[in-house]
Amino acid sequence: MTGLRFDDHFADPDGLFAALAGALGDLSAEEQRQFTAALALLLLNQLPSREAALAALDEARSVVLAAREIPKETSP
């Protein structure tokens, strides 16, 4: 709805991150690692093709590697 300065596109509007937090909630550290790996594999299996799965793996890797390059300035 217009005029209510409501940006529906941020701050977890669907509660997905909250659901993730809830799913991890009472697991031990080791179980959380297993959960994370299991989740990644389950989601990989949901992708429509082998090519899409490989592209997702590539992109995930490149996002993580790019973080190495984030500048380390110290003032705003």
Binding site: H9, F10, A11, D12, P13, D14, L16, F17, L20, A21, L24, L27, A29, Q32, R33, F35, T36, V63, V64, A66, A67
Partner: peptide, 26 residues
């Protein structure tokens, strides 16, 4: 916990390049 922090930080890393992840940044 460490797993949630990993998911949180991954969300932030992805958000710079992928609009879907920006929805999750809170």
């Amino acid at each position: 916990g460490e797993a949630m922090r990993a998911f949180r930080d991954a969300t932030l890393l992805l958000a710079a390049r992928h609009p879907f992840a920006r929805r999750l940044v809170n």
